[in-house]
Design a protein around this nucleic acid. Structure first.
Length: 570
RNA sequence: CGGGGUGUAGCUCAGCCUGGUAGAGCACUGCGUUCGGGACGCAGGGGUCGUAGGUUCAAUUCCUGUCACCCCGACCA
């Protein structure tokens, strides 16, 4: 490609609304252009990178025998009503009506559609297992889109789905996908980790996320410092504490704590540590109106764990202050587990302390020296809290450390959730109809582009890993317009490089060399060839890699051979 | 959804308080000089000041509504 034929939309200044480095650089390099909040055009430069990611993903999907298809972006509501998700999915789903006022959505994901395909087209267990994938735009109406294409509303996703007769087959394909994902992210040159994950609204029971490690990441990950345990913090189990509760020797005492409501305020007022305080949260229950959750004052509720508890409504909803007032008779800041006429679930760590402080269920009052068995009675114990750094690793080996990550892939074993709801059955060996088991496997293609920049950049701009670069080689002539013989030579080299299979950007603009160099570094093209009259006289062309400061002089009559030492043909 | 902020040229912003219908730098066009790390001079082009209404002789400026965009929060027991 010649720069003169290409939209090189680079800019010196960073647009004001970009926050993180990948977003800034994607705007400055002219890869993307915003149309509306969370909605972007992929300009020619950006699209080249996006296609590179797509290619790697497609190759690895094909390699493991998944078949590519393309499902509609617009899906009828009926399908989602069948699976039960029309009501469940929430405002992330963009719902639209056609001219007949029929309801549709812009697909946020495609389990329903693929399940519909499967039930219509797959008849026998003999056809299984089968895997499909597509690379397609999804739309999720995020609460707050941000960071450019990192969290956009419209985004390109690879989603794959597998169908099986039994769990063994599902696990096998899951493992194959896991390995394919590992291969994909390795090929893309990303520093990533696979972590145990929550299954979220997709459903199912077993799942891993692939996280690109970056400080700008929105996900928090927990790693063991002495084993390969890794999990999303929202999923990491907090092990029961080693010591169990002792008894309180002192009688319970109610004290006045007027105007002190938060954990911090109460602790300061009573001169106690938050570890000695029990906070009680009221949430909506699944069968009952309200369920109470008790945690240690220094711990935070893990909403995902709580919502999974059979007695708690999923998704988690906190009870409104007015309802608390009418049910308990006090404001939220004074609730406690004693004589609370509400089903109670106590976190493991909270259950392990005694002689604690808690709300007295009376306005402005707290209780001291409380003891679970003496003052509250039988309690139900569950893992409710978020893990914190230093907690024991759930696999029993070492302690947990935290790091931030960008979720670029997620694989799930769905089981029969969709096949059962939508009657996607096959005949088994005995001729009986049986719901297929399913797996689903996603990769955020557009997000990978941003994640890769987060990991690969410097002061000058992007430093693309080879497989992602929009161009492999930049050919930069020095003062092209002044020298006819330089022009002739550059044309020759440009055709030779193309003929040799390289993806070249030939910068034939009439700009000063500094401008060309600066743009070349900003865009992050991995390999650079520079030729000027000086080189022509001395019979060399200069080579430099983007990630190195060293330049090399390659003999003009043999530069292609030498170049092969640095650059692979695609 | 709650809180905060911003909308003026393609980009980054000034002007607004103290009304008199617009400016800088970058980018763009032409000419000249320059030419291995984002050059310089001269001459240009480009804005119904987000939008609707109000006040006023006069509104980018003051008032009201509205839309868009950005940031923070959505743990409070």
């Amino acid at each position: 490609m010649r720069t003169s034929q290409f939209l090189l939309a680079t800019q010196k200044e960073t647009p004001a609304d970009a926050e993180i480095v990948s977003h800034k650089l994607m705007l400055r390099t002219g890869m993307i252009s915003k149309l509306a909040s969370g909605i972007y055009t992929w300009l020619p430069m950006g699209l080249r990178v996006l296609k590179k990611v797509e290619t790697v993903v497609r190759e690895e999907m094909n390699r493991i025998g998944a078949s590519e298809l393309l499902m509609p972006a617009i899906q009828p509501a009926e399908l989602w009503t069948e699976s039960g998700r029309w009501d469940q999915y929430g405002p992330d789903m963009l719902r639209i009506n056609d001219r007949h006022k029929r309801e549709f959505c812009f697909g946020p994901t495609h389990e329903e559609v693929i399940t519909d395909i499967a039930r219509n087209k797959i008849r026998s267990y003999k056809q299984l297992p089968l895997s499909f994938f597509q690379i397609q735009m999804k739309f999720r109406d995020e609460i707050r889109p941000r960071f450019g294409v990192m969290r956009s509303r419209e985004f390109l996703m690879k989603d794959a789905y597998s169908f099986h007769l039994d769990a063994e087959s599902l696990e096998k394909t899951y493992q194959t996908m896991y390995e394919a994902y590992t291969k994909i992210f390795t090929r893309l040159g990303l520093n990533f980790r696979a972590v145990l994950a929550d299954t979220g609204s997709i459903g199912g029971n077993f799942s891993h996320e692939f996280q690109v490690l970056a400080n700008s990441g929105e996900d928090l990950l927990a790693f063991s410092d002495s084993s390969d345990y890794a999990a999303n913090v929202e999923r990491a189990e907090a092990l029961p504490p080693a010591a169990s509760a002792t008894k309180s020797n002192e009688p319970i005492k109610t004290v006045n704590t007027e105007n002190h409501y938060t954990v911090e305020q109460v602790c300061q007022f009573l001169a106690i540590q938050p570890q000695q305080l029990i906070k009680t949260l009221l949430v909506k229950g699944s069968d009952t109106e309200i369920v109470a959750l008790a945690l240690r004052g220094d711990h935070e509720l893990n909403e995902i764990k709580a919502a999974k508890h059979p007695k708690v409504a999923n998704p988690l909803q906190f009870v409104k202050d007015e309802a608390i007032q009418s049910q308990v008779g006090c404001k939220p800041g004074s609730i406690g587990p004693i004589k609370l006429n509400i089903p109670l679930i106590v976190d493991r760590d909270a259950a392990a302390i005694s002689d604690f402080v808690c709300g007295a269920n009376q306005e402005n009052k707290h209780c001291l020296h409380v003891d679970w068995s003496r003052d509250v009675g039988e309690i139900e114990i569950a893992d409710l809290r978020k893990v914190v750094p230093g907690d024991a690793s759930p696999d029993g080996k070492g302690k947990l450390q935290f790091a931030r990550g960008i979720e670029v892939g997620h694989i799930f074993q769905l089981g029969d959730k969709y096949s059962k709801a939508m009657n996607a059955n096959v005949c088994d060996e005995s001729g009986k109809a049986k719901p297929m088991l399913m797996g689903c496997y996603g990769i955020g293609i557009s997000r990978i582009v941003a994640a890769a920049i987060e990991q690969n950049h410097d002061e000058q701009g992007i430093v693309w890993p080879e497989p992602l670069a929009p161009f492999q080689i930049a050919l930069i002539p020095v003062n092209l317009h002044k020298s006819d013989r330089l022009k002739k030579m550059c044309e020759k080299i440009y055709s030779e490089l193309k003929a040799a299979g390289y993806d070249v950007l030939y910068d034939d603009r009439q700009e000063r060399p500094g401008v060309l160099f600066a743009d070349c570094d900003l865009i992050g093209i991995p390999h650079r060839l520079v030729l000027g009259d000086k080189g022509l006289d001395a019979n060399f062309i200069e080579y430099k890699a983007r990630n190195s400061n060293e330049t090399k002089e390659l003999p003009l009559d043999n530069y292609l051979t030498e170049l092969k030492n640095f650059v692979g043909v695609e």
